[in-house]
Nucleic acid binder design. Structure first.
Lengths: 353, 353
DNA sequence: TTGTACGCGTTATCAG
DNA sequence: CTGATAACGCGTACAA
């Protein structure tokens, strides 16, 4: 069979994407030199570099991703899988992560798992198959095979949004349990004794579990029976928060404070409480978690926990850079989360003047 | 030089990613057959197909993306560039878009341009370089070279979130100008005559420009002088909405209704108004645009324009499928946006009883 | 400092 | 229906 090299399928006209070879021809050098100019400019002479870069610009050359990935065995792409993109919980963190990556010339691929372990596993495979050089994951909760897969494929990853000693994995985040305990302490300090919790499904969500546990910790520390805590588990959404609150208001004894697993649920709960004619915080106190923008604009503003969104994103990027470079990323990083007191938390009603 | 085929750099142990060849060996067939099993199962015999697929499963084989892209000249990846991911404006639409793509086995890459034309151009290049088969863009406003680039590269694209006759480009969306005029009509119907507008920067944002124009249309239609409209231009954010409102409240004559370019600005404005001790809608009416979740939970709930988020996403996917298949996508699609009346809009104060 | 040439893992064509 | 094998476009030892 005869070779027909380098003739475009369609030699008629300009559906063309210039390739390295074209640039090389125009600049009067070899493809190797062009490649070097782009990837390792230091080793080529000033004169040729200029010549080549001019040609590159003139032709609007951009490397073919597939070819590059195939040859370099590296994509300069990191992946992130977050449970949701429908609200702002992870938005700020991702933004910071992305900014840090961009500075290193790395592209971010974001996928969302909709809080489904199966979907997340699929996304992990997909991102790795697409050549992600490293991965950002949220929380520890996922099937062990996910971890063995990543290890087998030698893909570095970091667990964000949690810090809990070490699970043998590099993580960066805050102590969800401790943070919720602090918030619960603030609630208990105000005399509340009948508490309720609206939380996300705790089965596949270690953050939710830890937050829940933090509340129990606080109660136990004061000699309260955790069994008296009313709990509603539901998916994160404003509507669900509202529905959960309604449900809780029909329980006896009625709670005087409803703590929510995040601000989205809390916003829904708050809206519903007011819709039911309750005064917040006069009749009922409500707290959130995460301190996303919504917390400040609802009425009354939400007492919540501010989490270090941006620092988690930035820090995760640093850890992954180190890991990709084959360096030791060091131990997991603990960042601080702080209680933010706003108007949705007040003294317990029966204790008020 | 001697060829050293198919020996892994590291033959020591299992840092391995199985390749087509490995699967072929295990199944006792050629690589071509394995490839066919995966991409065009119909043409291989049942027996071999089973044999091959078993091997694939057993080895956990996943095709190498780069190689696949290089050989097939197709990535099964679509890209979307939205102005922002920091709030929910585009979240629902993107979600729907993604769901539609997934059904066709297509992965979505999302990038955000932060409302910067330069950044957007860069993102377009990046996504195309990464082999995006098609692109979703928001609005028409961008340098012509972006369009010529896409045309030259033969990358299909659709413009979403707008419908304005035809710019010679396929678009799917609603008529921003008409929608805002309807909302403004509702405001004017309630007796408001001193209006203000808080809008995003209109220079690179045709949606913002059209919405602004719609307001002018409504005023003109009633014989009001558009010159009396107080306008503040600012970036979409809650904080900016708040600041803009404060500024407007210091103008004379003070507006009785503040219309906002979107719900995020409106939420900020609303919060600020209440912080300033104003009664909404008693002293001041405020409107938003987009009808994202936040519109329902602020107090009072926002009168706004509901835009067809999900249908735009789904429809955009359909159009792109057709275009990628070389079919004629047909003309641009106009969807309906509807005014949603909620409590933040009331009668003009001086007209109230 | 630059050029030559091979291999990266798939797909697709063509011959059996 | 299956098997060889030539591209696909780039990176990079190795040679010059």
């Amino acid at each position: 069979m005869v070779k027909v090299p380098n003739r475009r399928q369609d030699s008629r006209q300009g559906s063309d994407t210039p390739k390295l070879e074209d640039v090389a021809a125009r600049a009067g050098v070899s493809t190797a030199t062009v490649s070097r100019c782009l990837n390792n400019p230091a080793v080529v002479s000033d004169a040729t570099r200029k010549k080549v870069l001019d040609a590159v610009r003139a032709m609007g050359y951009a490397p073919n991703f597939g070819a590059q990935a195939l040859a370099a065995r590296r994509t300069n792409t990191f992946g992130a899988i977050v449970p949701t993109m429908e609200n702002a919980i992870f938005a700020r963190g991702l933004q910071a992560f992305q900014e840090a990556l961009r500075q290193q010339g790395i592209t971010l691929l974001v996928a969302s798992s909709s809080y489904s372990p199966e979907l997340e596993e699929q996304q992990i495979h997909s991102l790795v198959a697409r050549g992600a050089d490293a991965l950002l994951l949220i929380g520890h909760d996922r099937p062990p095979k996910c971890y063995s897969f990543l290890q087998k494929r030698q893909v570095p990853y970091v667990i964000a949004w949690v810090y809990d000693g070490d699970e043998g994995r590099v993580s960066i985040g805050f102590d969800n349990r401790k943070a919720m305990k602090s918030l619960a302490d603030a609630v208990l300090d105000r005399g509340h004794r009948r508490l309720a919790l609206i939380t996300a499904d705790r089965r596949n969500n270690d953050r939710a579990r830890q937050r829940s546990q933090g509340l129990v910790d606080a109660m136990t520390a004061r000699g309260l029976d955790p069994e008296t805590l009313a709990v509603v588990e539901t998916a994160y959404s404003i509507a669900n928060g509202a529905q959960a609150l309604e449900q809780l208001m029909h329980t006896t004894p009625r709670p005087t404070a409803v703590m929510c697993g995040n601000d989205v649920l809390a916003a829904g709960a708050l809206t519903q409480a007011r819709k039911m004619g309750l005064d917040v915080p006069g009749d009922l106190s409500i707290t959130g978690f995460d301190d996303i923008e919504i917390a400040e604009i609802v009425t009354p503003a939400l007492t919540t926990v501010h989490v270090p969104h941006r620092n988690m994103g930035k820090g995760a990027a640093s850890l992954l850079f180190a890991m990709r470079a084959g360096e030791d990323p060091g131990p997991s990083v603990e960042l601080e989360a702080t209680v933010i007191l706003r108007d949705s938390l007040g003294p317990a009603p029966d204790r008020a003047p």
